[in-house]
Design a protein around this nucleic acid. Sequence first.
DNA 1: TTGTATGCGTTATCAT
DNA 2: ATGATAACGCATACAA
Lengths: 336, 336
Amino acid sequence: MKHITIKDVARKLKVSVSTVSRAFNDKYDIRAETKELILKTAKEMGYKPNPIARKLIQQRSLNIGILVPEFINSFFPEVIIGAQEILIEKGYQVLIMQSNESAEIELKNLETMLDNMVDGLIVSLCSENKNIERYKSIIESGTPIVFFNRVIEELPASKVVFDDYKWAFFATEHLIVQGHRDIVHFSGPKNLTLSKNRSQGFDAAHRKYKISEGKKITCGFSMEEGERVALELIEKNEIPTAIFAASDPSAIGAMKVFKEHGYRIPNDIAIVGFSESSLAEHIAPPLTSVSQPTGDIGQTAAKLLLDQIETTGLFIPQTIILNGRLNVRESSIKVD
Amino acid sequence: MKHITIKDVARKLKVSVSTVSRAFNDKYDIRAETKELILKTAKEMGYKPNPIARKLIQQRSLNIGILVPEFINSFFPEVIIGAQEILIEKGYQVLIMQSNESAEIELKNLETMLDNMVDGLIVSLCSENKNIERYKSIIESGTPIVFFNRVIEELPASKVVFDDYKWAFFATEHLIVQGHRDIVHFSGPKNLTLSKNRSQGFDAAHRKYKISEGKKITCGFSMEEGERVALELIEKNEIPTAIFAASDPSAIGAMKVFKEHGYRIPNDIAIVGFSESSLAEHIAPPLTSVSQPTGDIGQTAAKLLLDQIETTGLFIPQTIILNGRLNVRESSIKVD
DNA sequence: TTGTATGCGTTATCAT
DNA sequence: ATGATAACGCATACAA
């Protein structure tokens, strides 16, 4: 069952392949009737231009690749959906790959995307964060690429980021205003800029209220990580009055462990998360969390990427910083 | 900044392109030393075989496409991760696309995957379920394809499904055993086989206990749909003593609405969900739900697909039915 | 307006 | 063991 090619159509209609080709690429002169006839019979024969061959000669694919570190939590899927809205609108198709937070798989995914000649990439790094050199070479080679959320500052590419510093500050301030003076920060993976920024916002709030610096524990983004760190605190008997976690899953994991050990949330321990997973408002008690404009992040990244793809001359990378919201819920408000 | 091609390498080493090609495909005769030399200098020059050109001539890509209707809930991501484990192991890369439950986008995604010459497809249909004819033609053309979870029975392809009938039966039976005689089923989208099966399991449990048939309301899988249907019941003042929802999100949406209207879960209304989203055990009260072996589903689908890809002769489609578990939690157990 | 010829970057066949 | 050359399926500069 061989594929039908342009030649088959040409032969059948006794025209040249170029004429058939022209019928499918309406930037050339071609008589309206022949074009119509060709398109009609091509359709009848079940002919479709082979995009692989097309890519080979045109060096473009109308495909955009999106690389994310995970998609179990709703954050990345929501961003992807936002990006997809813009890209599909413009005739692009979106290919997604996820690396399970593994730098090795991330690199393979990256190469696969390039192998498939994507016209551009939208990337959020995995927390291992090891492929900087490869990204540099890709950027240098001229492949349009936009980073979001988990970015590396030094890379000369456009970025869409969240104002982690500011909102970590607000989240911490909220706890301080509630009267807490012994707050522990579950900070994110060390290599990520956003971990640093959230951590610094945490410190800044302490400074503003002239409270001695809060304790920080490095903690992954996952629920398991939150459970691990919470257990650690319980074993050491170093229970703070409040926790500000760098992610919702880690906050939820900690909450689970504390509840299991008889601590009441928020009365014994107040908890604030970050990133507003869809869980936050449904768990018990509902989790106070910073929400990020996920759809916006995706849309903005997509627009930036399209700009870059369509720019012929020198492209100047931009960094766009988006705003969020602090959703205050029961997990951080003492009830009597 | 042109790409380095096989010709560049050949010219530099004063050998023919065929020799260089041979060095990269070790199925041909080539002297060990020349091969080594070629690979070495190729690496130095930064040459990599262009997979697009390779695909054009070899008609294979080592890429597998996975098509899902959504990935906001953790179900599909978990399946994908399972599939990925198997496929990456075998040297395949996994491209993912999601259709947001839109048949139109699903079709485009499908074509994009084929455009990229994936060696096979793993597909779960969107609930609109309109592209049957296209799937038929793809199967006929010989493209290996495995459906999972949301399948169409009549398609002659391998399928990995869950025993929806049986587990819907168990879930309903659980409610009946708890003493409920007025149970409403939030059934899934009409076109899907799994909706029908879950619905029939619901009926079967009623028959077994000789209870008059339960009421059924068609309801999408999303939280919003659950909210909508719950509101409808409240407005009509037709409050059952228990609800068996065909999905966790719709169960959770309903739970939210009922709680907001002053109903206590499970004392006023017991609720059971299906598919065990990661939410289930964390919401208040924890949701009784049927859990599916998501990772297994993905792995099984991947294995089936690889079998088919590697089978040269006639391939006989298989249907594999996987088992689950009923996780009983507070949402369905009356407390005093 | 249409046809001819060339090239995109490979691999495969046939010589040598 | 290596080289020359024809595909793969298409787009495009140039000629007609």
